[in-house]
């Protein structure tokens, strides 16, 4: 492989000083180029992150004033259904009188609500993702007064906890904050250090 002898032929070993200066130049240029390539990569990666209009729907405000006692509505948040139920005193009592140790996924009712009468859970069965029945008046609620998932028979109670069936976990509670008596912001946990347990 005949090379034209040039000062920078790949394997040339010039004097020490010349070599280090030249090598430094090559190294510096290569490094700057690499920085350039890495910086260029970021926009291509970040563009797949949620866009501004998607982020704008990260939280939704729901008006609760029209909901009657015993009634439930379904709100859409981040593409998921959110069950908001205005619980009757009986339903609250039922939820609180259960021995937590008996539950497949132990959790107290108090830990799952901020205001006792408002139960807010994500309406997706924790088994394989179907939407449980129980929102509409007259629909089947299962044996525990909460929700019944018709896909594989999971049953949830008035606190949204799994009681029987294949689902492994309670219905998930989204982060939410009460803005006032009748408006709740779903998607953001309260800023107070009390966490979910503190009252709004």
């Amino acid at each position: 492989m005949a090379h034209e002898p040039g000062a920078a032929a790949a394997a040339a070993h010039a004097t020490g000083e010349e070599t280090t200066r030249r090598d430094f130049l090559f190294l510096a240029t290569g490094a700057v180029g690499a920085i350039g390539v890495a910086s260029v990569a970021w926009p291509f990666i970040d563009q797949m992150n949620p866009a501004a209009d998607t982020l704008a729907l990260k939280e939704i405000e729901v008006d609760l004033s029209a909901i009657e006692v015993g009634q439930a509505i379904t709100a859409k948040w981040q593409g998921k259904p959110v069950f908001i139920r205005y619980r009757t005193p009986e339903e609250i009592e039922e939820a609180r009188s259960v021995d937590v140790a008996d539950l497949p996924d132990p959790a107290t009712d108090e830990s799952r609500v901020q205001e006792a009468q408002w139960l807010i859970v994500i309406g997706i069965c924790t088994h394989l993702g179907c939407i449980p029945q129980g929102q509409l008046p007259g629909s089947a609620r299962g044996d525990y007064g909460g929700w019944l998932c018709s896909c594989h028979g999971s049953q949830y109670d008035t606190s949204g906890r799994i009681r029987s069936g294949p689902a492994p976990q309670n219905l998930h509670v989204p982060p939410y904050t009460f803005l006032n008596e009748t408006r709740v912001l779903i998607g953001q946990a309260p800023e107070t250090t009390g966490g979910e347990n503190g009252s709004a």
Partner: peptide
């Protein structure tokens, strides 16, 4: 226009 306004760095791409 959504690319230009809302997608991260969409205007650049």
């Amino acid at each position: 226009e959504r690319i230009m306004r809302d997608v991260n760095y969409g205007w650049l791409l």
